[in-house]
Nucleic acid binder design. Structure first.
Lengths: 233, 233
DNA sequence: GTGTCAAGATATATTACTAAATTAGTATCT
DNA sequence: AGATACTAATTTAGTAATATATCTTGACAC
């Protein structure tokens, strides 16, 4: 049960089904949706379908205009930073570009976050990170727990920036970790993730912004490197 | 007409009204929504209300569970990077924290984006940025056009990273510019924004990643500085 | 050419109903 | 008395049929 970073099934399965068709490209960008046909295919009422469309519309995936019809919007207007959208995308066949982009965002955001965290972390923040690290150390062998604890560490770190918007990047990182797991499965037991994380934490605890930034940069650079090596680029 | 970076009225006014009430704190976090009461207050049908709720639910603002009720979620789960959410927030009384956080995200993302852009910008990207810069230079005195061109420049720059996720940060930047405009109104005509932007563009054109990063850092640092000075901190 | 008007199409809203899910209370049995 | 099983109440979720509002297109007049 590695559903640790899977959001609760907030929106019914109609949305999921529709989203999958669009995200996968089965229904391409620019296409006009045939609501009546979809209604039959998905075997739901029109109102239920429209509620699903409202969700997708809220995420910038479709646009429903009177008289003209309901269109799939270009991918550039999709809310790629939305947790659901990321999850739907990662559900399909693994997209190497997406993985690359996710890693890139991490390497932009996380070192900067570590820097801020070093300047602002409260005792509670530190305790949260410490707790996650302890659980990481104790989860050797149990891949599910390890990923959960890993994510918790990064979540706590982002929280320590005390910047609401930075905290939201959690979704990107969670998605990145989830997709990585789909690809790697059995990580090399030789490289223990704990020391590198501890290095970050200690720099933050010491309030050394530069050291924290650098330690985090090393961490995400290694992650990117691992990814590149595995995805065969 | 400074609606340049205002999204088309995608979702009806019911969503807007509900969103305002929640975002403003009138309906606080954790509150249980009384659908029947809201139905009357907003004077819409229940299905229309439910569609509005679906939109808010898609943005992580509320959570509707059968039998238990519909709850306002804690702010930490709201999709703060969503364009609509940002717009709704900036509609209310200006939140100094939000401005600060927006500026912080800019100062994290944009220098990194400039660096990537220097490595990847195509001729088209450069032309787009150049065009925006030209329009900036020609829009002296006309504040609306200036902001539009400014935003276009940053949009083009983000596009030049060729990273879908980074491109999405446009919403954050657009929101930041919009909120800044609400506050400053009449900018000091003494400081012309064009030279600093041109410096960034030229570094990108030259493919000098470090210079581009630095030039952009200088730019956003100055913006943050201006903001801090005005908002009276 | 430009503006106005009518017709057609389609998303949007309304009403009223049924179904499903889940909590809490109640009764029953051991 | 305590645990289990049943029942009721509440509230979201879904269905269906119908009406309305608004946008697009094309035609027609000016």
């Amino acid at each position: 049960m590695l559903a640790g970073y899977q959001l609760r099934g907030v929106h019914g399965q109609t949305v999921e089904a529709l989203a999958r068709r669009i995200l996968s490209g089965e229904i391409p960008e620019g296409a006009t949706l045939d609501l009546l046909a979809l209604r039959e295919e998905l075997d739901v009422s029109l109102t239920a379908l429209r509620e699903a469309l409202k969700v997708l519309s809220a995420k910038g995936i479709i646009d429903a205009r009177q008289k003209r019809g309901t269109f799939v919007q270009p991918r550039s207007t999709w809310n790629m930073l939305d947790g659901d959208v990321l999850r739907w995308r990662s559900a399909g066949p693994p997209d190497p570009d997406l993985l690359e982009h996710l890693a890139e965002v991490r390497s932009i955001v996380e070192p900067a976050a570590a820097k801020l965290a070093a300047q602002r972390a409260t005792d509670t923040d530190l305790a949260d990170m410490d707790d996650a690290l302890t659980r990481m150390a104790g989860a050797a062998g149990k891949p599910g727990e390890l990923v959960d604890a890993d994510l918790d560490f990064h979540r706590a770190l982002l929280g320590a920036t005390h910047n609401q918007l930075v905290v939201q990047m959690e979704r990107v990182i969670a998605s990145g970790l989830a997709m990585r797991d789909q690809v790697v499965h059995n990580a090399d037991p030789a490289d223990d993730p704990v020391p590198s994380h501890r290095k970050v934490l200690e720099a933050i605890r010491a309030g050394d912004a530069e050291a924290a930034e650098q330690a985090m940069r090393a961490l995400v650079d290694k992650a990117s490197e691992d990814l590149r090596r595995i995805s065969g680029h």
